[in-house]
Design a protein around this nucleic acid. Structure first.
Length: 815
RNA sequence: GGCGGGAUGGUGGAAUUGGUAGACACGCUGGAUUCAAAAUCCAGUUCUGGCAACAGAGUGGGGGUUCAAGUCCCCCUCCCGCUACCA
């Protein structure tokens, strides 16, 4: 008997798939399409376990859908721009482009070794001009529509390296390379008006089949709120505009807080050295939300008052380090009694805390302990609002302020416009030319793409194209005079926001997309890490709508169904190069073969759950494959089933074997289709194999049943362990292709049972088991349970208070 | 700080709609096979007590609802992800 030899068998199967171009697919309007997409990788060097998990899930589903008769597209490509290439370039003295292309070549070979069924003719890399030119093209269209615009926004600035740092590059407030203290600096950047689409992004979440937790995170991130914009006059100066969701608490406003970069603060700083010093110190904070919220809240009184529009009261204006100029109006009103952050600030600086909302149940509130934040309250100390609950108070004050011209109702979003400028080299150039006389102009369509020079000296400090005249110096497309190119590049989320569409027509040279996109789109199932639940998925949804509004695509949403894979952790935290805790799957592939690696990672846990990596147990997966192989080979060696004695009734063991098989098919199909839990699908097949090994019926009927079980089992496992199943299918005597063989069907007649087991409980504790007819009624179940000896022991002479019968499950006797 | 998620034997996990907790594996223990080892096969394996039959306890901690709670509700602890320039 041949022994299980994964190396040879996997190479043969892969060769066959490649030679026959099995996974290359075309549009076929006559067939139902299924587009299965995994988040493409950043080419960081080699695959890590998280990739293997992600791409195995995608391949399993793709192969399953294909066996169900669908025209399945499963493409793969490279999210090839990004910071790690720049870091590697500095470290190894290779240009980012060369490093990236090397990594792509190696990682592609790894993906091929794992046997993933990709349509490689659609492969793309986002760092190629033929890809990013369309992103540049769309951006120029968006400039003309006013969706792309320029404004200032804060960045982390290293004063020594004279460069912008990513949040990741700021370690405890210091530059990761030179350890100098990082400052916040406002610079002009390009933005996309995602806020114009906020309502649609919110509403369309109803249309997608995504995990509820992801939809919740997106809703919270968008953060729609209904509030008011209110004007506070500042005598002798420009008034302050603030947004508040709690205009009902206006009578409790005891101070205003403004950003350090606010014009009012800057003006005061020019007069007062102490204020200037404070303003300066406010720049020593990171830009990240987490850092901003966790830092000590500091402030300084400006010595200027604003006038509360509802009661004419003068309240002090403070500069506060937690208010940022770039977000909202750069000013807020503060109500310490009813906002926890304001409360803490007021306590620290001895500012009045004035209660203007009381509990509905008329209990008292201890404002010494903290703010009373809820909207479930009634206004007090608020003049015309007194006694009103939130909704009524809101309307009353809104009407008054609108009548007085001091404010208006406004819907606001927590979501901010998408800043797409990066001051880095390894990204797609922003297609803009700045002319002193004509201003910022989009690069004309005929001049696209703006190609990023790849052959550069990369020193690390600053982007090389920022000092490269051959790149920078151009003639103005409008007046023809000397002008300069924009040297910032796009956020890499731009590339990953539309690749799913480009995969449908990657060879289209004269347009961003063509009609093929509407055949495949939207993606039927998108699979990727839960860490992308907000940013990437929100930007991709937004970008899809931009492409739709440009007439490029018909659908509203890019991803119909979403499977968020849990993270693969190592020692309890995210794997990353910087932590040096990445796991290379290559050793496992070399030692056991691709099928073992695929089987093990799918068996280890359900896809949505995070998985702390450990490779104990890989042996078990390998052992199962050997057992399966051996069992099939022994069956095949036993020869063809005799047909003479197969016509009669099946005996009990034979019926039980067939029932087990068809119960397994039913369960496994549901696991693949609805639950997406491959670990339980595998476990069910392990059980089935265990049952089959114990089924030692050597009759013709027995052999025939064994053939049926092996055929079905190999079909059910083929998506997970495709190489060995490809081979076993042939060994089982078939000359068809397993990859296109229909998925096994449940034979309902095999599931029929005459009697079932029911559990007897006494006071909810398991005390015995009985066999009853399938169609036994409640009364006979109850009678059988009460007649049971075991149960009787526990009932003793206690009176029976109640008997609960759950048909087909259990009888609970309450005494 | 905010938002989202998680915690079940020595380990990974199962229990799908409130109904038998621990399926299926890993590991471990014992046995068979072998000159020996590897591989393979068989048996056992939640904890406590007991030779056993069996009994009691048990799903991060505390409370609650229910005939019945890993599952539902309230409070708490710890861990993970995201937090707008990591991807």
């Amino acid at each position: 008997m041949k022994h299980y030899d994964p190396k040879t068998l996997e190479a043969e199967a892969q060769q066959f798939w490649a030679d026959e171009r099995i996974f290359e697919v075309d549009e076929d309007p006559g067939r139902e399409s299924y587009y299965c997409l995994c988040m493409f990788p950043y080419p960081s060097g080699k695959l890590h376990i998280g990739h293997v998990r992600n791409y195995t899930i995608g391949d399993v589903i793709s192969r399953f859908k294909r066996m169900q008769g669908m025209n399945v597209l499963q493409p793969m490509g490279w999210d090839a721009f990004g910071m790690p290439a720049e870091n590697a370039a500095i470290k190894n003295n290779v240009p980012p482009a060369a490093w990236t292309y090397q990594n792509i070549d190696y990682m592609r070979s790894q993906l091929k070794l794992l046997g993933f069924g990709y349509d490689w003719k659609r492969e793309l890399a986002t760092c190629k001009p033929e890809y990013y030119r369309w992103e540049q093209w769309l951006f120029t269209r968006l400039m003309k529509k006013g969706i792309a615009y320029r404004k200032t926004a804060p960045v982390n600035w290293c004063p020594v390296d004279q460069t912008v740092l990513a949040n990741e590059q700021v370690i405890e407030g210091r530059c990761w390379r030179c350890d100098s203290e990082v400052e916040r600096r406002e610079i002009a950047q390009w933005f996309l008006k995602i806020t114009d689409y906020a309502d649609e992004l919110l509403a369309d979440l109803e249309q997608v089949d995504w995990p509820e937790q992801v939809k919740t995170m997106q809703r919270n991130w968008i953060g729609r709120s209904e509030g008011m914009e209110v004007e506070f006059e500042v005598p002798g100066r420009e008034s302050l505009m603030v947004y508040t969701t709690r205009p009902d608490t206006l009578y409790g406003a005891t101070f205003m807080a403004i950003a350090a970069e606010h014009p009012l603060a800057l003006a005061a700083a020019a007069q007062n050295p102490q204020i200037a010093e404070f303003v300066e110190s406010c720049r020593k904070t990171k830009t990240s939300e987490a850092a901003l919220e966790k830092m000590e809240k500091l402030g300084m009184a400006l010595g200027i008052d604003a006038v509360n529009p509802v009661n004419g009261e003068s309240i002090p204006i403070w500069i506060a380090n937690f208010v940022l100029m770039g977000y909202g109006t750069g000013a807020i009103m503060s109500v310490p009694a009813h906002d926890q952050r304001d409360w803490e600030f007021a306590r620290k600086y001895g500012i009045d805390i004035r209660q203007v909302v009381e509990p509905l149940d008329a209990s008292t509130v201890d404002l010494e302990q903290g703010a009373f934040v809820t909207k479930d309250g009634r206004s007090c100390n608020s003049d015309l609002l007194n006694g009103l609950e939130f909704g009524a108070a809101f309307d009353a004050i809104a009407n008054k302020l609108e009548a007085d011209g001091k404010g208006q109702r406004q819907v606001n979003y927590r979501l901010r416009d998408w800043g797409v400028s990066r001051q880095r080299y390894w990204g797609a150039p922003i297609p803009v030319i700045n002319c002193d006389s004509c201003g910022m102009l989009p690069v004309p369509e005929s001049d696209l793409p703006v190609v990023l020079p790849e052959d550069v000296e990369f020193e690390g400090i600053g982007s090389p194209i920022k000092r490269m005249d051959s790149f920078k110096k151009v003639n103005c497309p409008q007046c023809g005079g000397a002008a300069e190119r924009e040297t910032d590049t796009f956020d890499t989320f731009m590339e990953s926001s539309w690749y799913q569409e480009r995969f449908t027509c990657p060879d289209q040279g004269s347009a961003m997309l063509d009609q093929r996109a509407d055949y495949w789109s939207p993606v039927d199932l998108y699979i990727g890490g839960i860490e992308h639940a907000i940013l990437h998925l929100l930007y991709a949804r937004f970008y899809h709508k931009l492409m739709r509004d440009e007439g490029l695509i018909a659908s509203n949403e890019p991803f119909k169904r979403l499977l968020t894979q849990g993270m693969v952790l190592k020692d309890g935290s995210k794997m990353s190069k910087s932590k040096g805790n990445t796991i290379d799957p290559q050793d496992l592939i070399d030692r056991y073969g691709a099928d073992t690696v695929r089987l093990f990672i799918m068996f280890a846990s359900p896809p949505e759950q995070s998985l702390d990596w450990s490779d104990t147990g890989v042996e078990g997966a390998y052992r199962f494959l050997k057992r399966l192989w051996t069992a099939v080979q022994q069956h095949v060696a036993a020869g063809q089933a005799g047909s003479a004695d197969t016509d009669g009734e099946l005996n009990d063991a034979q019926q039980a074997m067939r029932r087990k098989l068809h119960e397994t098919i039913r369960k496994v199909t549901d696991d693949y289709e609805r639950r997406l839990t491959f670990n339980t699908a595998i476990a069910a097949n392990m059980e089935l194999l265990n049952s089959l090994v114990r089924f030692d019926d050597v009759s013709g009927s027995g052999h025939k049943i064994r053939q049926e079980v092996f055929d079905s089992m190999v079909l059910m496992l083929a998506p997970i362990i495709p190489h060995v199943c490809h081979r076993l299918w042939l060994d089982l005597g078939h000359d068809s292709l397993i990859i296109d063989h229909p998925w096994p069907q449940v034979d309902a007649s095999a599931l029929v049972q005459e009697s079932i087991e029911m559990v007897i409980q006494v006071n909810g504790k398991l005390r015995g088991k009985i066999q009853v007819d399938v169609d036994a009624d409640r009364g006979s179940c109850e009678a059988a349970a009460l007649a049971n000896e075991q149960a009787a022991r526990f009932i003793g002479d206690s009176p029976i208070r109640k008997v609960i019968v759950v048909p087909g499950k259990l009888v609970n006797i309450v005494v």
